[in-house]
Design a protein around this nucleic acid. Structure first.
Length: 799
RNA sequence: GCGGGUAUGGCGGAAUUGGCAGACGCGCCAGACUUAGGAUCUGGUGUCCCCGACGUGCAGGUUCAAGUCCUGUUACCCGCACCA
C-alpha cells in the first residue's frame, strides 16, 4: 500500500490544530522552553524555500523539547510594515492593509502546509493597532528618558523610494531595497541613542551563547577603539580637539586635518585667507553621494587653511591645518592630527601635498610607506618618549597630557545613533506632537494606539515629506500640554521598530494593559534559542538587544539579554549555486515541492541538504532520496513483529541512533541525525523485520523531522494515543557498544588488515591478533614499536 | 585594506582528543521483478599502470600516524570599508 502523503498530512494538520496540540500552556510552574525564529515579512512573492530551513530546524527542537516534557513556546507572527507592501499598494491602488492581509493569509497557509508546530493562538502582526500601540509606548518611554531626540542631520536619501534610509540600509552606496541612487540630504530626524548602550552591548555578549561569528560581527559593528583626545591650540585662539588611537606618535604630527563640515571653519572664516577655495571644496564634498565618495577612495584631496595654524602641544611647533573629506565629521571629533609616518591615509595625503614625514617609531622604512605596526617598534625623535615601546609610550604620553591639561584617555565607537524616522505611510506613526509653545510633546499614553489615518492616497511627496504630512485631519491637533493648536509628527517608524520587541508580545499576546504581564515575561524570558539569518546580525539583533536593555532599565523585563542562545542558518541557493532570485530564474517554489513530495519530504530534505550553518545549493534530484527514505519506513509496517524490548541484533544500533539523534539536534547537526536514522533503517532492512518496541522508538526519533508520517504509523500500529503525547526515547551509553569491535591493523602507518576482537580485549591479545593478521608484512623484519589505541587500531612500526 | 568563512569522489556532503578518508544521500553501472519503467528490490561504484600505488586547493614541516596540528601560499564567497 502506497503512502498517500497528501491526505495524511492534511489529516494531521487538522487534528493538531483542532486539538490545540502545540499551544504553550500558561502554567508557570512547568519547565519552560522558548524557541524562536525570525518572523517573516509577508511579501507578495510568498514563502521562499529559505524560510522553512530555519523554521523546520527549530520546529525539530520544539517538538523534541515537548516530547522531553517541556512547556514549549514556539510562536509565529508577521513583520508586516514596510516598503514593498506600500509600493505595491500605491502601484495597484489597494490599501496596504488589504495587501498585508492577503499576503499574511498566503504565508500562513504555506506555513501550515509544512506542519510546523507553531502556537497559532499567539500569532501577532506588527501592523495591528493592538500591537503597534506597544511599539509606540516603548518609543514614548525612550523619549521620556531622553533616548529619543530630534536632530538636523545629513541623511541618506533614496532618490527612487523617496525615503530616508538608515546607514545600514545603504549598500554599496545604493538603496538596499531598490538599488536606487542614494544622496545626502539634510533633514530633521528622530534619533535613538543606541550609542549610549554601546559598551553594554559589547560587554553582555560574554553572558550569552551566540555562535562566534555573530558575536564578532556585533563587536566589529559597534567598533570600540581606545585612544586619547588631544587638544591643539591654534593661532586663531580656539582649541582644536582631535581623537587618536596613537597618542604615542604625537611628536610625528606634522599637520592637521579637519572634516569639510567642521563647525570651526565658519568660526574662522574671517581669518582664513583662501575662504573661496575652502567653500568650493565644501560644496564639492557635500554634493558627493556615498557612492561617489567610496568610488574615488584612492586619491586624497583637500585644501590648506591659509592664515590659521595649530600648535603641537608637546613641542610647540606650528603646523598647518587642512580640510579633507577623508576625515569624517561623524566619528571622533571630526578632526585629526596627521602622522604621515605611521598612518597610511596620512601618508598618502602627505605625499599628495608634499608635507614633511617624521619617523617617530623605528622599525619600518618611512621613505617607502607608513609604518603602522604597534607591536615591534621603538620610539625615536620623540623627546620624553624616546626608547619606549609603543605601548609604554601611549601610557606615558596620556599621563603627560593629563598633567598638562592637554588631553585625556578616550574610548570611541563606530556605532552611530539610530535614524528612526521614515517619510512613509506604512509604518507606526511616531506619537509626538509639535507645539510652538511647548516644543515636542509626547502623545498621552491613554491615547495610544495613535492610528494611521484611513485615507485613499498615500503617495510619497517629491519634497521628501511623509505622505501623512498632507493629511490635515491627522496633522492638526491640540497640544496635550497647553491645549493650544499643534501639529503631529508625520514621520513613521522604520521596519526595525516592530521587530525589536516582538518576542516579548508572544509571551502574552492579547494583553490590553501591557506589553505582556510581568509574570508571563518573567516565566518565558529569556528566549532559550533564537535562530535567524546572518543578515540580521548587525541590524535587527543589535536593535532588539538595545531595546531589551532599555526595557530592563525601566523595569519592564527582568533579564539583561533577550536571547540566551543565537544560531544562524546558511542560505539555500539555486541549483546553479547562485543566490535564488527571480532575475536569475532559479527560484524554487515550496508549494510545488510540498505538492509533489509532501511536507515531510520537504522538511527532511531541507535538513539533510548539508551543514545547517552553511549555504547549500538546492537539488531537485537529491530530494528523491528523502522521499524514498520515508516510503521505506512506511513499508516497514509489513514486517512488524511483536516485542517489548530491543532484540539483540538491533540493541546497539537503537541505542546508538537515539544517542546520535538526541545529541545532533542540540548541535545543529540535523543532516547527520538524518543520516543516522537512514543507517538504522538499513540495519533494520538487513535484519528483515522490526518489532513493535523498536518501531515505536524509531517513530519518536523521526517525528520531529517528519511529523505527519510518524503520527500516522503510530496511530495505525496502535501504540497508544497520539505520538505527541509520548516521551522521547532514552539511550544507555553502555548499550551503545557492540560485543565485538573491529580493529585496524597498520604497518608503518599504512592499513594492512583488520581484526575482529571482543570489545573488552586486552592490549596483549589485540597485539597478538594483529601480528597474526599481518604476519606476511612483518616477516623477517624488526618490530621497533607497537602502538595500540583501544577501540581503534594497532600500528606496528617495523624496520 | 580590515574582519569572518570556505576548499574533501561525477554531485550534496560525513569524519570527538591527530587514529580505517569518502558515513548518509543523489547520480551512475549491473542484475531481479515487469507488457513497460523516470516505480520497486538486490549488488557494485575515489583514481590509476588494480595482489600494488596514489588520493582532502597548493608547497613545506612535526608525528608511528595529518582532511585534522605548525609555517608559507593560492582561489573563491560573505560582511565592513578613508572609523584617525
Amino acid at each position: 500500500m502506497k503512502y498517500d502523503f497528501a491526505s495524511v498530512e492534511k489529516k494531521w494538520q487538522k487534528i493538531w490544530q483542532d486539538k490545540n496540540v502545540f499551544a504553550a500552556k500558561n502554567d508557570y510552574t512547568l519547565p519552560k522552553y522558548y524557541a524562536l525564529v525570525e518572523f517573516p515579512y509577508p511579501s507578495g512573492q510568498g514563502l521562499h524555500v529559505g524560510h522553512p530551513r530555519s523554521y523546520t530546524a527549530l520546529d525539530i527542537v520544539a517538538r523534541k523539547r515537548r516530547l522531553q516534557g517541556y512547556n514549549v513556546l514556539y510562536p509565529m507572527g508577521w513583520d508586516a510594515f514596510g516598503l514593498p507592501t506600500e509600493n505595491y499598494a500605491i502601484k495597484n491602488k489597494i490599501h496596504p492593509e488589504i495587501v498585508t492581509k492577503q499576503n499574511v493569509a498566503r504565508f500562513k497557509e504555506q506555513l501550515m502546509s509544512l506542519g510546523l508546530s507553531f502556537d497559532w493562538n499567539r500569532e501577532i502582526n506588527t501592523t495591528d493597532p493592538d500591537y503597534y500601540k506597544w511599539t509606540q509606548w516603548i518609543f514614548l518611554q525612550l523619549f521620556k528618558k531622553g533616548l529619543a531626540y530630534k536632530k538636523e542631520m545629513s541623511v541618506n536619501w533614496c532618490t527612487s523610494c523617496k525615503v530616508v534610509l538608515a546607514n545600514e540600509e545603504v549598500v554599496n552606496g545604493v538603496c538596499e531595497r531598490c538599488g536606487g541612487e542614494v544622496v545626502h540630504k539634510v533633514k530633521s530626524q528622530w534619533m535613538l541613542k543606541i550609542t549610549e548602550y554601546a559598551q553594554r552591548l559589547i560587554d553582555d555578549l560574554d553572558d550569552v551563547d551566540y555562535i562566534d561569528r555573530v558575536k564578532i560581527s556585533q563587536k566589529n559593528w559597534i567598533g570600540r577603539s581606545t585612544g586619547a583626545e588631544v587638544e591643539f591650540d591654534t593661532t586663531a585662539g580656539d582649541v582644536l580637539t582631535v581623537y587618536t588611537t596613537r597618542p604615542d606618535t604625537l611628536y610625528g604630527a606634522t599637520y592637521m586635518v579637519i572634516s569639510p563640515e567642521h563647525p570651526m571653519i565658519e568660526k574662522w572664516a574671517g581669518q582664513i585667507g583662501n575662504m573661496a577655495a575652502v567653500r568650493e571644496y565644501q560644496a564639492v564634498s557635500a554634493r558627493k553621494s556615498d557612492f561617489e565618495r567610496t568610488e574615488i577612495v584612492k586619491e586624497k584631496t583637500g585644501v590648506r587653511l591659509e592664515g590659521v595654524k595649530a600648535v603641537n602641544p608637546v613641542n610647540g611647533k606650528e603646523i598647518p591645518i587642512f580640510i579633507s573629506d577623508y576625515v569624517l565629521m561623524t566619528y571622533g571629533t571630526g578632526a585629526i592630527m596627521a602622522v604621515p609616518a605611521h598612518d597610511t591615509r596620512d601618508y598618502d595625503f602627505a605625499k599628495a601635498f608634499d608635507l614633511p614625514i617624521i619617523e617617530v617609531v623605528s622599525g619600518g622604512d618611512v621613505s617607502k610607506e607608513a609604518f603602522t605596526d604597534c607591536a615591534t617598534g621603538t620610539m625615536v625623535n620623540s623627546g620624553i618618549l624616546d626608547g619606549l615601546s609603543v605601548e609604554e609610550a601611549k601610557k606615558k604620553i596620556i599621563e603627560w597630557l593629563e598633567e598638562n591639561h592637554k588631553g585625556r584617555p578616550k574610548v570611541n565607537y563606530k556605532l552611530r545613533d539610530w535614524v528612526f524616522s521614515r517619510q512613509r505611510f506604512w509604518g507606526e506613526p511616531i506619537p509626538i506632537v509639535y507645539c510652538e509653545k511647548c516644543g515636542y510633546v509626547p502623545v498621552p499614553e491613554s491615547e495610544l494606539p495613535l492610528r494611521l489615518p484611513e485615507v485613499e492616497s498615500f503617495e510619497p511627496t517629491d519634497d521628501g515629506e511623509s505622505p501623512l504630512s498632507k493629511m490635515e485631519s491627522f496633522v492638526n491637533t491640540i497640544c496635550p500640554h497647553c491645549g493650544g493648536p499643534a501639529k503631529r509628527e508625520t514621520d513613521t517608524m522604520p521596519q526595525w521598530a516592530g521587530s525589536s520587541w516582538y518576542f516579548l508580545r508572544y509571551c502574552d499576546p492579547h494583553n490590553p494593559d501591557a506589553i505582556a504581564s510581568k509574570e508571563a515575561l518573567d516565566y518565558w524570558l529569556p528566549v532559550d534559542w533564537y535562530n535567524g539569518g546572518m543578515e540580521h546580525t548587525t541590524l535587527h539583533l543589535l536593535y532588539s538587544r538595545f531595546w531589551h536593555k532599555f526595557l530592563y532599565d525601566i523595569g519592564v523585563v527582568s533579564t539583561k539579554e533577550p536571547y540566551a542562545k543565537r544560531t544562524s542558518h546558511g542560505m539555500i541557493l539555486g541549483e546553479n549555486g547562485e543566490k535564488m532570485s527571480k532575475s536569475r530564474g532559479n527560484v524554487v517554489n515550496p508549494d510545488e515541492i510540498v505538492r509533489e513530495y509532501g511536507a515531510d519530504t520537504m522538511r527532511l530534505y531541507e535538513m539533510f541538504i548539508g551543514d545547517f550553518e552553511k549555504s547549500a545549493p538546492w537539488s531537485s534530484a537529491s530530494i528523491k532520496g528523502c522521499k524514498r527514505f520515508l516510503d521505506r519506513i512506511w513499508a516497514l509496517q509489513d514486517n512488524v513483529i511483536e516485542g517489548e524490548e530491543y532484540r539483540d541484533e538491533l540493541r546497539a544500533a537503537m541505542h546508538k541512533t537515539i544517542k546520535k539523534v538526541t545529541e545532533d539536534i542540540e548541535n545543529l547537526k540535523f543532516n547527520t541525525a538524518i543520516a543516522a536514522m537512514m543507517t538504522l533503517l538499513n540495519q533494520i532492512a538487513a535484519v528483515g523485520s522490526i518489532n513493535r518496541r523498536e518501531f515505536k522508538d524509531f517513530l519518536m526519533l523521526l517525528n520531529p523531522f517528519a511529523p505527519h508520517i510518524a503520527e500516522e504509523i503510530f496511530e495505525k500500529l496502535n501504540f497508544g494515543g497520539m505520538l505527541t503525547e509520548n516521551l522521547w526515547p532514552a539511550y544507555d551509553e553502555a548499550e551503545c557498544v557492540e560485543d565485538t569491535i573491529e580493529l585496524v591493523v597498520q604497518v608503518n602507518g599504512k592499513l594492512r588488515g583488520k581484526i575482529t576482537v571482543p570489545a573488552d580485549v586486552t592490549k596483549e591479545d589485540a597485539l597478538a591478533a594483529a601480528k597474526g593478521e599481518v604476519s606476511a608484512a612483518v616477516e623477517g623484519k624488526n618490530v621497533v614499536k607497537e602502538i595500540y589505541v583501544p577501540g581503534k587500531l594497532v600500528n606496528l612500526v617495523v624496520k
